[in-house]
Amino acid sequence: MTRIALATTRDLAEIDAEDALLLAALPESELLAWEDDHDWAAFDLVVLRSTWNYIDRLEEFLAWAERVASVTRLANPVPVIRWNTDKRYLGQLADQGVPVVPSVFVAPGDHADDAAVAGKVVVKPTVGNGSNGAKLIDHDPESAHEHIAFLHSTGRTALIQPYLDRVDDEGERSLIHLNGEFSHAATKGAILSQQMSFSAGLYADEDLSPATATDQERAVALAVLEASARVLPEAADLAYARVDLLPSDDGPMLLELELTEPSLFMPFAPGSPERVAEAFRTLATSRKI
């Protein structure tokens, strides 16, 4: 009998709604905290789902992923996880010709020039999720430098990006792919320009709605995935991918590529829990370590 583990964290106050949907659609699965001592080899597939506290324990998390991958199949693969958990991958994708929101990386010990923090910008850590550590700064270079210094004081590299105002009216578009095929899309309302709340503790609450991806958005998402596979061959074999795009005057631009533990926005696309379940089931039954 096929067994699939859905990895979560014990730091969540209650089960994530998406995990509940997936458990119902995938009865051969179990929800297990990555921090706990389980016999991961007993599973045909381990899928990263809601392991959202890894940002504070990255090396421990990556070491756990290596151990799991040594005894069974892990989705997505460890090289992909290691690459994708640091947003410096955006620079590599930009070098591949992907339309990426302009990104400046400032490592501890380095200094951002004034041009990088001029205007309305977002400053956030390169290792982060759920808007943790992200700050919108409006024409205040001093505050931008202060936030960069704060991130550096905690050992983190800072990422600076211009704030694209069209997101306030049009939202951020997320395109979800399963085993290489487009599945569905959702729109996420602007977060940083609003008063953020963290009801679950690990990530900022999001304003989500169903969406129909445009042909242009789908083309950009496909270009992003193809570029990722050129940069990292293991990224050609993905169980799931979420491509987050922002609207701009020049067309959709990549904000983030979520390949590690993304929400897949299943409540907003009819049939998507079943599609996600089938994608994981296919992976578990057709590919053995």
Rank of each mutant, 00 (worst) to 15 (best):
K135I: 02
R218K: 13
M1R: 11
W52C: 03
N179D: 15
L48D: 02
L32R: 12
V167P: 06
N179K: 04
F105E: 15
T154D: 14
W40G: 00
R88N: 09
D215A: 10
A13I: 07
G180H: 03
T154I: 15
W52E: 07
D244I: 04
R10T: 05
D215F: 01
F43Q: 02
S228E: 04
D114V: 02
L202H: 12
S286D: 13
L246W: 12
I148R: 05
A112I: 03
M253P: 00
S183H: 13
L283T: 11
D113V: 01
R230V: 01
S50H: 06
E172C: 03
I137M: 04
L257E: 02
A118G: 08
A241R: 00
Y54E: 06
A65M: 09
D215C: 00
E217K: 14
L151V: 12
R3Y: 12
L246S: 05
A41D: 12
L32P: 05
Q194A: 04
D205T: 01
V117E: 13
Q96N: 13
K188L: 05
A190H: 12
P141N: 05
G97V: 07
D168P: 00
T187E: 08
F61D: 10
L90T: 03
S183F: 07
F182C: 03
E256W: 04
D249S: 15
P267E: 08
R49W: 10
T154C: 14
F182N: 04
L31Q: 13
P247H: 07
L48Q: 02
L192M: 04
V123M: 08
N53S: 14
P267I: 07
S286K: 13
M196H: 07
A17F: 11
I148Y: 10
A211R: 05
S263Y: 14
H177I: 00
I148D: 00
Q161R: 05
V104N: 06
E30F: 03
S103D: 07
V224G: 01
F105M: 13
E14C: 01
S197L: 06
L45R: 04
Q195E: 15
A186H: 01
M266Y: 02
E256P: 04
V68E: 11
D11P: 00
Y163V: 04
D16L: 08
L48T: 00
D169E: 15
A107H: 11
W64Y: 07
K124P: 01
L23H: 03
F43V: 07
G171N: 06
T9M: 10
T157N: 10
L31A: 11
P210Q: 14
T8G: 11
T282K: 15
L175H: 09
G155W: 10
D140R: 15
V106W: 05
L136C: 04
R166E: 15
D205L: 09
Q92R: 13
R242S: 05
T214F: 14
N179Q: 15
Q92H: 09
D114A: 12
T212R: 14
D11F: 12
M253E: 11
E274Q: 09
R287T: 12
A134C: 02
Y203W: 10
A41P: 00
A63P: 00
D138E: 12
E142G: 05
L255F: 05
S248G: 07
D138I: 13
E18T: 05
Q194C: 02
L90Q: 12
A115I: 06
D11V: 03
E28F: 01
S50C: 09
H184C: 02
S228M: 13
F150W: 15
K188M: 08
F150M: 14
L225P: 13
N84Q: 03
G251Q: 11
